[in-house]
């Protein structure tokens, strides 16, 4: 009988203790953020979609179209094309498209890049109305950012320019091949294929 009443009292007391907690929190200030009105600054390490870095010296991107990122990407969503323009030492990207809807933001592309040409953006509003909205042309985005920062805009090579460069390169290669007729081609496309 005593146990019966004791149990009731202990139980009742535990309920009161719980209610004391909630009423205490009732008077505390709120901790949430009213999103569209207030925004939180993203941490510097935040991984948005990867984008091309604007090199502070050359004021353009550093991509040499080596396709390392395209090969390591788990979802195979990066398309890079590049060509060696006459008079330049290295290849230069003519197309860098990122199909962001497949991206898992793993960060392997930014880590593997030999010229550290990629960084994460702090963009988190990635919703779109169409699937195509998530296809990011990084050279176009780079132009937009350059315009916003008041820097000279890097032109995207047109198809004719690319064709001309390709022809020039082919010609140069042919000349080189003739010069070293017996030499083998150095790199036979390292695999990591899909």
């Amino acid at each position: 009988m005593i146990n019966y009443f004791k149990e009731i009292l202990v139980g009742f007391w535990s309920l009161l203790a719980g209610m004391a907690v909630t009423i205490r929190y009732f008077t505390k200030p709120i901790v949430t953020v009213q999103y569209p009105r207030e925004k939180i600054k993203m941490s510097p390490a935040y991984r948005g979609y990867p984008r091309l870095i604007i090199d502070p010296e050359t004021q353009t991107h550093r991509c040499i179209a080596c396709e390392m990122c395209a090969r390591i990407c788990p979802s195979q969503l990066i398309t890079v094309e590049g060509i060696k323009f006459p008079g330049e030492k290295q290849k230069r990207a003519t197309k860098y498209v990122h199909e962001h809807y497949y991206c898992s933001l793993c960060g392997l592309c930014t880590e593997v890049c030999p010229t550290s040409a990629l960084e994460y953006s702090d963009e988190y509003r990635l919703a779109g109305y169409h699937r195509e909205d998530a296809v990011l042309d990084h050279l176009v985005i780079l132009q937009l950012r350059q315009t916003a920062a008041g820097l000279p805009v890097t032109a995207i090579p047109s198809a004719e320019e690319i064709a001309a460069a390709a022809a020039a390169e082919a010609a140069a290669k042919e000349a080189k091949a003739k010069a070293a007729a017996a030499a083998k081609k150095p790199q036979a496309g390292e695999e990591v294929k899909e």
Binding site: S43, P44, A45, S104, L105, G107, E111
Partner: peptide, 24 residues
């Protein structure tokens, strides 16, 4: 999550460790 975000860059589906160590 804020702490891990500042280190790993993501809040839920982390991909942080690498073979041989950590990247950051």
């Amino acid at each position: 999550l804020d702490l891990l975000d500042s280190l790993t860059g993501s809040r839920l589906t982390y991909c942080f460790y690498r073979f041989g160590g950590v990247p950051k």
